[in-house]
Design a protein around this nucleic acid. Structure first.
Lengths: 119, 119
DNA sequence: CTGATGCTTAAGCAATCACTTTATCATTCC
DNA sequence: GGAATGATAAAGTGATTGCTTAAGCATCAG
């Protein structure tokens, strides 16, 4: 059909958790270290690391370690691809609506008195 | 921050499963009964029903029962809202890129030879 | 070297998930 | 009425999730 990439699994799964979405939103403001990411979150550092690992597996976030601090940043490419999946679904749906509209249009012209409420 | 609606939890969670995405994609082509949805899927009908329940809870799908057949259809509104969350993230990120660019632009003009560490 | 800081690993645990099978219920067809 | 059809409800199960605590490693400041 439209799309069955396993990467979508990982991305949607990653975004399904409010903690991870908060991390993503934090990263839209710019890169951050692990502890900076963890600071506003009501959980232990290891827990944040696990969330981070999931975000990295999905490709939403990349990170590199310099000295003893790991710096994380958003990768909008995956964000874009995910957005595209949704818009494609909407597009297909709208396309069908258009075709439906066209059908009723034709029906209305060929049988002007038929009860086709809903244009 | 940007968005912390619990509905996003449900929607992303719903879309995280390939079976449920397949159901959504099927529904972009038009309404379908439960068994029509189940037909291409390699699992029992009750399993499909459970997936459907999750899709309905998220608001992605609505359904009504007429006689003994339940007809399901996509609700693009939630799809649209989810898409918006992602595009807002990208927008914030791009906005930061722009500001960064402007900063370096200014820095380059005002102090053409300076090391550009922090204002 | 010594201690503080930042991150990482490992193990454990309760809750949730994605199914299954079995048993009903309600509607339509003959 | 009685069988076939479409959809549900209920209970059980193994795997996964989202944490925790405790311990360990690497880097940096004094």
């Amino acid at each position: 059909m439209l799309n069955q990439k396993p990467s979508l699994d990982l991305t949607f799964q990653a975004l399904a958790d409010p903690t991870r979405r908060a991390m993503v939103e934090r990263l839209t403001l710019g890169p951050a270290s692990v502890s900076e990411l963890a600071q506003p979150l009501p959980m232990s550092l290891p827990a944040v690391m696990q969330h981070l690992a999931i975000l990295e597996q999905s490709g939403l976030v990349r990170s590199q370690k310099i000295g003893r601090v790991r710096t994380c940043q958003l990768d909008v490419q995956v964000l874009r691809a995910t957005e595209q999946f949704l818009s494609q679904c909407r597009f297909a749906w709208n396309h069908r609506m258009d075709r439906l509209g066209a059908f009723f249009e034709v029906a209305r012209v060929e049988r002007p008195h038929a009860g086709t409420d809903g244009r």
